[in-house]
Design a binder for these strands. Structure first.
Lengths: 348, 348
DNA sequence: TTACGCAATGGTAACGTTTCCTTCAAACAG
DNA sequence: CTGTTTGAAGGAAACGTTACCATTGCGTAA
């Protein structure tokens, strides 16, 4: 049975190479003022012992942790997992690690997550706040001395720069599209209305309807298939029969599509459908579903770049809170017209 | 403009509370032998200064990092992001953080990832190795002194316990299912054949075909839509016209489905289709696609539990390499019969 | 009363790095 | 030949925490 080996230390390397600790440190960190010959000996010792610098000790000495955090509602969500992928990639290019924490949109978990990141002395982090109006989070973020970037949802009070898609205009655009098709009675199925993104989209829908002099029909409590089906069934009855449906969220779009299909309601002949947020099979399904596409990759990339710009730029002490750059990036969405809105027949 | 604050230290808390550092440490760590009155004072000082223990210093003192790693090909992949979600959740319950690293199935990135984790002194990690036969990885893992669990793909030589779905039996089962429907000429579209999972599935398919005395038709290079469509078009021509297709991977299934649809080939009347791995709209699409479902959540959960069992159990020094428990967990897959295999008409 | 045990608390040496500062030798100008 | 500069290398302090040990005070048994 092999003996339990402790991790070799810098001092052990030094002893083995017959040099001082300083020299080893210099070799490890690629600092000059060391003879090629000495260097070779040290490097050999490092190899032989399988030495890897102790990260904790370095950090303690004032090193950066070279670690960033990501705080999101869920990492299983394709939207956020794509962001995470991008972020992780860019972080790695910079030699940084990524710590992922999920909140399930709960304030308490969010607070814990941020505190944990602070405690671990991450050099910065990206957060998709559960709620923009969360005072506790805001004051917590004010005290944070490392760069923070808000992703997908801003933090009120511009306490951190944010990278957000233009949900309002995206929804407005989609609604316009339906109106342009001649539909008058256009309903909107929201999902969790307490979320910033959904609220913005709902506002966009309402604005577009109002601008066209049409009455907005907002169903705000749709989150599971059963209630979705029920709501749709109700919409399709009576004299105020809905002609088009705009769903504000991926899962609701899918539920609505499935419900319509099960009820044997033809799309778009009987009801048109547009969804917010694209998904894997939206274009494969029959009829293909028209959606508002979000620039997911770009969101992640921009957030990462913003974070690292602050990270690199601010070797000078970072100013916490208000004084931090209040950059607000708003990214454009695009409408992908497919068949479900009545735009054109399926290509077959 | 607010002054740049350093993080308050334990010593500062001690001074403020008028006690020794030891006492503060005891309060922070909830150790007994401290008067309620003293405790209150210390706690107040902690609150006032917003003190959070310095993680690096603790780790340096021999504390566990309470951090685990996850090394996967991609975090954007729904399969792995689901695993990550589960793992993160369980880790958090135990008070652990999760560091995510992606490899894109490249050996070099994989090695770097593992080294980085060692350097950061994670308490253990979960890895989905790019290649089971990677000697370098194996010897690297042999030297690791913390618990490691292989996920989705084993490491040859049982150098770490593994949690894997039974790809062979899953594919065999699906192939049997097609054979039971009376199809004779059943083709298989693989995806990246160099991956363990795909290879196992291909083997399962071949075994089932051989057992039935049928000739296996394996197409191994299908990874993008164009080549998929081309391959399928070819299969459907001539006297050896294929009657059923078995796709070994999510994206290939989708590509095949789309190709078939575009070509106007009716499923399952003209060609039946079964895919490996379930996906969001597999049951919504018409016809609904029969698939082999993997126990994704359970994979993640089992891996996490295994890891934490080792983590908790081994306050005694961990034995590296061979001597480590060679647990191999094989999880059952299940066939979800839907319409595309010809099982039954769409419910409408 | 004396001594002893026990609870409460504090002093201080590590943990493994980095970095300032020192030492030493050799090279070089005057 | 001496004084000064330069490059290579090492000694030791400090980063913030924990844990071992020492110290104090107090109740209680002998």
């Amino acid at each position: 049975m092999t003996k339990q080996r402790k991790h070799p230390t810098l001092r052990e390397v030094a002893k083995r190479a017959g040099v001082g600790t300083t020299t080893v440190s210099r070799v490890v960190n690629g600092v000059e003022h060391v003879e090629p010959w000495t260097m070779a000996r040290v490097e050999r010792a490092i190899k032989e012992l399988g030495y890897l610098p102790n990260h904790a000790a370095r950090v303690l000495k004032g090193y950066k942790t070279r670690t960033i955090g990501l705080v999101v509602p869920s990492i299983a969500d394709p939207f956020f997992s794509s962001c995470a992928e991008v972020l992780q990639g860019i972080a790695r290019q910079h030699g940084f690690l990524l710590i992922v924490l999920t909140t399930h949109n709960e304030r308490e978990m969010e607070r814990d997550a941020v505190n944990t990141l602070i405690q671990h002395r991450v050099d910065g982090f990206v957060i998709a706040p559960a709620d923009a109006e969360n005072d506790e989070l805001r004051s917590l973020l004010m005290r944070v001395t490392v760069p923070v970037v808000a992703l997908d949802r801003p933090v009120a009070g511009a306490v951190a720069p944010s990278v957000v898609a233009d949900n309002f205009v995206g929804a407005e655009h989609a609604t316009h599209h339906l109106i342009a098709h001649g539909y008058k009675r256009i309903a909107c199925l929201t999902g969790e209305i307490e979320l910033y993104t959904i609220r913005e989209r709902a506002r966009g829908y309402q604005a577009a309807m109002a601008a066209a002099g049409l009455e907005a029909v907002l169903h705000t409590t749709i989150c599971d298939y059963a209630s979705c089906e029920k709501a749709i069934a109700k919409m399709l009855k009576g004299p105020d029969r809905v002609e088009a449906i705009f769903t504000l969220k991926n899962s609701v779009t899918v539920d609505a599509f499935e419900a319509l299909q099960r009820m044997g309601v033809r799309i778009p002949e009987k009801v048109a459908l547009i969804g917010y947020d694209d998904f894997q099979l939206a274009g494969t399904v029959r009829p293909a579903i028209t959606v508002v596409q979000q620039p997911i990759e770009e969101l992640g990339k921009t957030a990462a770049e913003l974070l690292f710009r602050h990270l690199k730029g601010s070797s000078a002490p970072v100013i916490p809170g208000e004084a931090r750059a209040k950059q607000q990036v708003l990214l454009k969405t695009s409408l992908i017209p497919r068949a479900s809105c009545g735009c054109r027949p399926d290509p077959s």
